[in-house]
Amino acid sequence: MRIVIAIGGNALLHRGERADAATQLRNVTSAAEQIAWVAERHQVLIVHGNGPQVGMLAEESERDPTLERGYPLDTLVAETQGMIGYWLAQNIGRRLPDTPVGALVTQVVVSAADPAFDRPDKPIGPYYPTEEAERLSDERGWEFTKEEHGMRRVVPSPRPIRVIELPIIKRLLDQGCVVIAGGGGGVPVASDRSGVEGVVDKDLVAALLAEQIRADLLVILTDVPYVYAHYGTPRERPLVLTSPEELDAMAFTAGSMRPKIDAVCAFARATGRPATIGALNELVAVITGARGTHIREGRALGRRQR
């Protein structure tokens, strides 16, 4: 099978963990072990998130007194592609010494007229206490959203239109490479390839790539084992098998689970092939169908649960 695996940035840097390189490398090493198991048996394209990492770099850049202004987000996305892509390639390559593994800096075309630029909703970076978030909003013009663990910066997240490096990605997969591409949703660029200030959602890019490379399965990994109906209420229940139609009728948070739902539904509808959402530390069980939420086009199936 040809499988696209999307790894969330929060899965590589868990909530409450320090953003030390050693911490993230430990999490990447654990992920790489399971990805290598899959890649021994299937063709694999890996897309990774970068929300915590790009936000951390943006904050460091803004605070640097030697700079006239902080680095733009498109440049920081490219920087995190290199960092996380290197970590993944290094650790997967150790486990698959006879398989070429490559990380590709990837550009994604977006529209300058996308309404997302007027409604920032993509969380990046660390959590802030309310008072500090208010100060940063006044000083830097940043916008914030309130989450369970504190205030978090939000930036525009335009929809992906086209992946510029798609022909290269296809060629590498056809030649038997494990490919890491679309990191952080890809570097957002305009049609003339000039950088755009924003962060593209990596799940939507993963779905777009999965459709265009004719993947047999799209797997989106995060830090929860299932999609939950009525999440956070006494009626909460895990969905094991569901459909785009059933998911459409449910409410999900715009900046976190909603893009994942949109991505798997778009892929299932466009291709008729399955998609799965599950936990990074259960990747093998998710691939084999033992864990995770499995989405298939057709009649509502979500009443099945564990």
Rank of each mutant, 00 (worst) to 15 (best):
Q43H: 14
V44G: 00
Y226V: 08
L104V: 15
E68V: 14
D223F: 13
R94T: 13
R269N: 01
G93L: 10
L73H: 13
R193F: 11
L136I: 03
I124M: 03
H294I: 13
I164T: 11
V219M: 06
Q81D: 11
E147D: 06
L136A: 05
E131N: 10
E17R: 10
A103P: 05
G176N: 13
E197F: 06
E62K: 12
S137Q: 14
A266I: 03
S191Y: 10
K146G: 06
K170E: 15
A32G: 14
V205M: 04
A249P: 02
G278H: 11
H14W: 09
A263W: 06
D98R: 10
A39Q: 09
R269C: 10
T66E: 15
P126Y: 06
I124H: 08
L12V: 11
Y226L: 07
I220G: 07
V44K: 00
V105W: 02
H42N: 15
I92W: 03
Q90P: 00
G49A: 06
T80I: 14
T80E: 01
A207M: 09
R135D: 09
S243T: 03
I220M: 15
A251R: 15
I124R: 00
A266P: 00
A215D: 05
Q34W: 03
L25H: 07
P158C: 05
R306I: 12
D118S: 15
D248R: 12
L12E: 07
K170D: 15
A270R: 12
T130N: 11
A268H: 05
D121G: 10
T145P: 01
R214M: 14
A190S: 15
L280R: 10
R296F: 03
M151Q: 15
A113G: 11
G8S: 14
M151V: 13
I213W: 09
G70V: 07
S194P: 01
S137W: 01
P97F: 10
A215N: 04
D20V: 03
R69M: 11
V286C: 13
A190W: 07
G70L: 05
R303T: 14
A266H: 10
G141W: 01
L166G: 09
G150F: 06
I46W: 02
H48E: 06
T23D: 02
L218W: 04
D74G: 08
V264G: 09
R26C: 12
P225M: 07
E165I: 05
I46V: 15
V77T: 08
G298Y: 00
A270P: 09
A251P: 04
A207F: 03
L239C: 08
I5C: 03
A181M: 05
M250K: 00
M257V: 00
R2S: 13
G49C: 09
Q107D: 07
L217P: 09
D203L: 04
G298F: 09
M250G: 00
A254W: 07
Q34I: 02
V219E: 02
Q53Y: 05
A19L: 11
I161G: 09
D138T: 10
N27A: 08
D262A: 12
V38C: 05
R26I: 05
D114V: 02
G8D: 12
L204N: 10
L67Y: 10
